[in-house]
Design a protein around this nucleic acid. Structure first.
Length: 601
DNA sequence: GTCGCTTGCCAC
DNA sequence: AAACGTGGCAAGCGAC
């Protein structure tokens, strides 16, 4: 594939429209590439300036305001695939302008790029330079300069670099498609199908959004910011330092006779939470408290107050290709990392409680139980671990009983948590020293627990060792270390020399894939319109009260699954509430009572 | 003023 | 032999 013999056209007359029609009808095409250039990135505020259609040889650009009928006509007549790079973005812009590209005809080369290699930039130019023609990203200098000078909306359409590069993008997309498609079909067709489809589900989630109690958020934000300002004033008056300046605070504390031993990644003196908690000094306590409230106020509450729409709804972006493992990420703001309820952080509950149900709605939460642990048991095919999942009762109690051959172990037994921690440490591929440090226990305890764990669940160690071997093998024979996730079929690459991370990537990748397939099932079952937030192993819905019992039923049907990882059962739990921070386990009668007694908003 | 890097911290 | 994985975001700080 290359960019020799490429023809680019600007449709700016009826004659050119006729030429385009002739090209369109000249041969049957399985697919067309499409794209558009807009005045900005926000489909709600910005508009399309240029529309583009192309195949591997020819690209056609046209001023949208005058010739959008060309696109409209082709969308009606073309029955093959519509290929875009980040296709949903362009599809949404075009949809807002009245041209609806059918969802079932869309293919996305950006999704393919991510599946083939999520470590590489998925930007069109980068992908095309790598896989189509090294010149793809080169000669864009004139255009970049013009855009910088005139803004995205100010470059004249007739400006040759503008329309020709726009037209070229469809050719790049087309050639990228022809390159990526066979690879994706060979390596991970199922993963592609799921990734391509799930974008449409999360796009609806973005549109639906989450309701915010703005007054409550604002009130608490002001309170916290005032407190932070007070602490700062006090700190400056008392010690001559701002509590946000680590360098300054360290100096003051050193002068007070304290010594520091922990270092940051680059070797500087560390002043993180762990260090501060070990210091008995009023300034240390003030810095800790201020950090906590500052974080809550600026990272979370500020967005609630400033970024809701006119209806009090916040619409974060969901990036289905967020992590290289296939996990999704979220931004503006990220609702996947709101602090959980905790004794030590009372402000944390407030952050979650700002997200409330719509009027006459109920928030429904459904999360998988220990999904990564179940995937580990499945990948390792460890009979004892699988048995612990198939038996009644708490999984980690079952694990601890199996390890210590002691059926009197209950949920409050510290051995249960010890085994649980070790299980997650295995998933993260953590070493013994790190575990000891994190848990604050003697190294020997970790070593002993690990020995007991490994002898009871030998499949886990075999699985992890084998994965490392596969990584090294693939590095020798394919140039890069990777292993394939048996659930999604996707390759997971790692940094050379860090093959121990591959087992984590497979586990996390399988969990992400499983989760996405479930989002698709929920959408197909009609729940798409109420889903709002994906949190890795949990989905949060905002459901009209008259639909709630049905929705809960569907969730239980879909999210509990004895087939997909057989013999390991996948289980989930449903909770409900009217404020995120106050959810409780699902109970139909109690919920109905609470709705009747007016606890709903 | 903006940009990039570092540090720290929230989640799963 | 051992190796804590994936993200987003804010503030401080020096460089431009």
């Amino acid at each position: 594939m290359s960019l020799d013999d490429v023809e680019l056209h600007l449709i700016d007359s009826l004659d050119e429209v006729a030429n385009f029609q002739q090209w369109f009808e000249s041969e049957p095409r399985d697919y067309l590439a499409f794209d558009c250039e807009s005045t900005g990135l926000n489909p709600r505020k910005d508009h399309i300036r240029l529309g583009q259609i192309g195949d591997r040889h020819e690209g056609w650009a046209f001023e949208w305001a005058r010739w959008s009928g060309v696109m409209q006509d082709v969308v009606k007549r073309h029955t093959g695939r519509w290929v875009g790079h980040n296709a949903l973005f362009d599809r949404e812009f075009m949809g807002n302008a009245g041209v609806q590209v059918p969802a079932h005809q869309i293919d996305d080369t950006r999704v393919m790029s991510h599946i083939i290699d999520p470590w590489m930039s998925t930007a069109l130019k980068k992908q095309a330079a790598r896989h189509v023609d090294a010149r793809a990203g080169n000669a864009q200098h004139d255009l970049d300069e013009a855009i910088q000078r005139l803004g995205w909306g100010g470059v004249p359409i007739e400006f040759e670099p503008y329309w020709s590069y726009a037209a070229l993008d469809t050719v790049l997309t087309a050639q990228l498609y022809e390159h990526h498609w066979p690879i994706v079909q060979e390596q991970a067709p199922k993963a592609y199908e799921v990734e391509n489809a799930v974008q449409f589900v999360t796009r609806n989630m973005e549109r639906y959004g989450a309701r915010v109690d703005v007054a409550y958020a604002q009130e608490n934000r002001v309170k916290f910011e005032e407190y932070c300002a007070q602490v700062e004033k006090w700190s400056v008056a008392e010690y001559g330092v701002k509590p946000g300046s680590n360098v300054g605070v360290i100096k003051v504390l050193q002068e007070a006779g304290l010594s520091f031993s922990k270092a940051t990644a680059s070797g500087a003196v560390s002043l993180d939470k762990e260090v501060l908690e070990g210091i008995d000094h009023p300034l240390a306590r003030a810095v800790l408290q201020r950090r906590q409230l500052q974080k809550v106020a600026s990272t979370y509450l500020r967005h609630y107050a400033e970024e809701v729409d006119v209806d009090g709804i916040i619409h974060p972006s969901i990036n289905t290709l967020g992590a290289r493992t296939g996990r999704m990420s979220m931004s503006d703001p990220n609702l996947q990392n709101l602090p959980r309820k905790s004794e030590r952080n009372r402000a944390a509950t407030i952050v979650r409680n700002c997200i409330v149900a719509r009027p006459r709605h109920t928030q429904i939460f459904c999360d998988f139980s220990q999904v990564e642990m179940r995937i580990l048991a499945w990948l390792a095919n460890d009979v004892n671990m699988i048995e612990a999942f198939r038996s009644e009762g708490d999984f980690f109690v079952n694990l601890a009983r199996a390890v210590y051959l002691d059926d009197t172990i209950e949920k409050n037994n510290p051995l249960r948590d010890r085994i649980k921690n070790l299980g997650y440490a295995k998933i993260y591929a953590a070493g013994a020293a790190k575990q000891a440090q994190t848990a604050g226990v003697p190294l020997q305890q970790i070593i002993d627990t690990t020995r007991a764990f490994d002898s009871r669940f030998p499949g886990v160690k075999v699985f992890q060792d084998l994965t490392v071997q596969t990584g090294i093998h693939n590095k020798m024979f394919h140039g890069r270390p990777f292993d394939v996730c048996p659930l999604s079929g996707r390759r997971h690459y790692c940094e050379p020399g860090k093959e121990y991370t591959l087992s984590n990537f497979k586990i996390q990748g399988a969990a992400a894939f499983l989760y996405k397939t479930k989002l698709l099932e929920l959408d197909a079952a009609g729940l798409g319109e109420w889903m709002m937030i994906p949190v890795h192993d949990e989905v949060i819905l905002d459901v009209p009260n008259d639909q709630v019992p049905d929705v809960v039923h569907v969730l239980q049907q879909v999210m509990n699954d004895n087939e997909i990882l057989a013999p390991v059962p996948i289980e989930s739990e449903v909770s409900y509430g009217w404020r995120w921070g106050e959810k409780r386990n699902w109970d139909l009668d109690r919920w109905a009572d609470e709705v009747k007694s007016g606890q709903a908003t």
